[in-house]
Amino acid sequence: MGDRLKAYGIGLWDLAVLAALRDFGPASQGDLGIRLGIDPSDLVAVMDTLAPRGLIERSRDPPGPAALLGDHYSGGRCPA
């Protein structure tokens, strides 16, 4: 499966995040990290892969200086 995903420029963690967002709806970075058991810095790298491809949307909630802690992600469509 990993080889097929590489053709789309994503990996297994990317797919895991997309599946979690599809199954459970929009989530904060912290919630996604806990649910998937992924380190927050690794999760940021996943989001940085998915967002430019239009597979997720990032929104800050609440807006303000601490907004990074409240990033929420909603899943898009996985091309795989």
Rank of each mutant, 00 (worst) to 15 (best):
G30K: 01
L32P: 05
W13Y: 07
Y8D: 04
S28G: 15
R22M: 05
G64F: 03
G30P: 13
A7F: 07
R58Q: 13
R22P: 12
A45N: 14
L15D: 00
P63F: 14
W13K: 11
P62G: 05
A27D: 05
G2T: 11
D48N: 15
D31L: 08
C78Q: 07
K6L: 12
A27T: 08
I10P: 04
D48T: 15
G11F: 05
C78K: 10
A27K: 11
A7V: 14
P63L: 15
S74K: 10
A19F: 09
Y8H: 14
I56E: 00
D39K: 04
A67Y: 07
V17Y: 00
V46C: 03
A80C: 08
R22T: 14
T49C: 08
A66K: 13
G76P: 10
P40A: 05
S59K: 08
Q29W: 12
L50H: 02
G70M: 07
G9I: 03
L15K: 06
P26H: 06
A20C: 12
A19I: 06
G33W: 06
L50S: 02
D31K: 13
L32M: 09
I56H: 02
G2Y: 04
A16N: 06
S74Y: 04
L18E: 02
I38E: 09
P63W: 02
S41N: 14
V46G: 01
R58I: 03
A19T: 09
K6H: 11
L5C: 07
D3G: 07
D39M: 06
A7G: 09
L18K: 07
K6M: 10
D61N: 15
D42K: 11
W13R: 15
G33Q: 04
R22C: 05
G2L: 05
L69Y: 10
V46R: 00
D71H: 13
S28R: 11
P63N: 05
G9E: 00
K6I: 11
R53T: 11
R35N: 08
G54P: 07
D48S: 14
L18A: 01
M1N: 11
R22H: 10
Y8L: 10
G54W: 04
P40D: 03
L43H: 00
I56P: 00
D3R: 08
H72V: 15
A80T: 07
A51C: 12
R77M: 12
F24C: 13
K6E: 06
D31R: 11
R22G: 04
D39V: 08
G70S: 04
R35Q: 08
P52K: 07
M1P: 11
D42Q: 12
R77W: 09
F24A: 12
C78H: 08
L55A: 06
Q29E: 13
R35I: 14
I10S: 02
L12W: 09
G75Q: 00
L15A: 06
W13A: 13
V46N: 01
A7L: 08
V46I: 13
P79A: 13
G76A: 02
P65Q: 06
P40Y: 01
G11Y: 02
G76T: 03
A19Y: 10
G2E: 09
P40Q: 01
L36F: 00
R4M: 10
A67R: 09
P79V: 15
G37W: 06
A7H: 11
R60S: 14
L43W: 01
P52W: 03
Y73D: 01
G37Y: 06
R58C: 03
D23L: 15
L32T: 01
A45T: 14
